[in-house]
Design a protein around this nucleic acid. Structure first.
Length: 449
DNA sequence: AACCGGTTTTA
DNA sequence: AAAACCGGT
């Protein structure tokens, strides 16, 4: 039995970990994480802090044996392999274009020194690239994808491997200070990180909120969602575990939850099949775009004068998370009311969301913008006032995030312009007229098609 | 067996 | 409007 390296990336857990089990079957295991300083710096502070906290939790669950090194993985991973005399390096397969390219470089560098690179499993219940149409092509429409995905099914989760012989090596001396700094500079309160905490959150959701999920998941004022996204993003939980937990559940809540997981898998598959669609239109649409810097800044900071939009944008900055209903409304506002190209918004979301997942985020944006999957409805323009009144009927979400409107009762918080004291606490006036910009957006779509 | 055309579907 | 399927060839 030789030595194997388990190189952790978006799979920061020990339970139900096919690549970890594979590494343990090869011999003694060195658990490794590599911080690429070129990625660590530019990420948002909340995102970096969440990764730091999750790494600390993983390290604790390994009794402090997680080895963290700094640098370009194509240099660091082979160097560590030499250092410990490893014969194989194990990973969960990556589907994002940047990760695919990085892994190609790392595997090539490992091959040069005679070390095998082995990918086992992926962060998805069904590996991207597996589900295909009857014609053998990747799906571009969600519903038939979801049907085929369900039909395909998924493996049962496995437990953490027991009796692993862990190999020890030094963590880079600079890492402690980096993790400390990330935790210290975190602008928000993060949930507790790590597998056990995620598991507790999930069980609580399943036992208390799942029955009403079908209805409550659309209400941003209600804690009606599972809040699993940040843990799913780093692989602290695997969707297979959640699906397994719901296997006996036939109610609307569980059905809808499975469908939401299917969206995540769909977008990962679309990204895998169309790597360029990460930052370019999946279906190029020659639209005229604006670059209104002041309005974009107002959108980012939550002072557009539209209550539900401002509440959402402030939740993003304050919590590192935004309710999905509001993600759609704020994305529609940037693209349809301000006529801004979707990557501007997608980049802002990715910088601040602790769950910021490239496929789900960017294809969610493209879905709203009309350049992505789900063809025709270019005319999908969300009315921010209607969205607010429909999904936050008593205004509680707006009052929570927009103190300037806290004095308005009930749905009045969505329409300060209708109340004498609506602007008594310096809430900004609307920066655009939605009815007018809606027509402008439709005119531009007409022009482009 | 890859391709065509008509029909249904598209959160 | 485009995708996916289905039943042909």
């Amino acid at each position: 039995m030789g030595t194997a390296i388990m190189w952790f990336r978006r799979d920061l857990r020990l339970r139900d970990h096919p690549a970890l089990r594979e590494s343990a079957s090869r011999g003694a295991v060195l658990p490794l994480f590599v911080i690429d300083p070129s990625m660590w710096g530019p990420a948002g502070a909340a995102k970096t802090a969440w990764l730091a906290a999750t790494l600390r939790a993983l390290d604790a669950s390994l009794d402090g044996r997680l080895v963290i090194r700094l640098g370009d993985p194509a240099e660091v991973v082979p160097r560590v392999a030499r250092e410990v005399g490893a014969t194989s390096v194990h990973v969960s397969r990556e589907n994002e274009p940047g990760g695919v390219e990085r892994d190609r470089r790392v595997v090539a560098a490992l091959r040069e020194i005679g070390v095998e690179g082995v990918a086992t499993g992926s962060p998805y219940a069904v590996d991207p690239g597996t589900v295909r149409t009857k014609g053998g092509t990747p799906f571009k429409v969600f519903t038939p994808f979801a049907a085929a995905w369900r039909e395909h099914g998924w493996d049962e989760p496995t437990s953490a491997p027991r009796g692993v012989e862990w190999v020890e090596a030094d963590t880079d001396g600079r890492v402690e200070a980096m993790l400390d700094k990330a935790a210290r500079e975190c602008p928000i309160d993060l949930p507790t990180a790590g597998e056990d905490a995620a598991r507790r959150r999930w069980v609580r959701f399943r036992d208390e909120a799942l029955v009403d999920y079908d209805h409550d998941r659309d209400l941003p004022a209600v804690e009606g969602t599972s809040r699993m996204s940040a843990d799913l993003h780093l692989g602290v939980v695997h969707p297979r575990q959640l699906l397994h937990d719901l296997r006996e559940e036939r109610g609307d809540g569980a059905q809808t939850y499975r469908t939401e997981l299917a969206w995540r898998e769909f977008y990962a598959d679309v990204l895998w099949a169309n790597p360029d669609s990460a930052w370019q239109d999946l279906r190029p649409l020659p639209l005229r775009y604006d670059e209104p810097q002041d309005a974009i800044e107002a959108w980012r900071e939550g002072r557009t004068g539209y209550p539900i939009i401002d509440a959402g944008m402030r939740q993003l900055l304050g919590e590192g998370w935004m309710h999905n209903r509001v993600r759609m409304a704020t994305a529609s506002f940037l693209t349809k009311d301000l006529h801004v190209w979707w990557p501007v918004g997608a980049r802002h979301f990715l910088e601040h969301l602790v769950d910021g997942d490239l496929g789900s985020n960017n294809h969610g944006w493209q879905w709203v913008a009309g350049t992505g999957t789900d063809a025709s409805p270019y005319f999908r323009v969300f009315n921010p006032v209607t969205q607010g009144k429909r999904f936050d009927p008593d205004g509680a979400y707006v009052r929570r995030w927009v103190p300037e409107l806290a004095h308005l009762e009930g749905a009045a918080a969505h329409e300060p312009w209708k109340h004498d004291d609506g602007y008594a606490h310096d809430y900004p006036e609307r920066i655009v007229d939605h009815a007018q910009e809606r027509l402008e957006a439709l005119a531009r779509y007409d022009e482009a098609t």
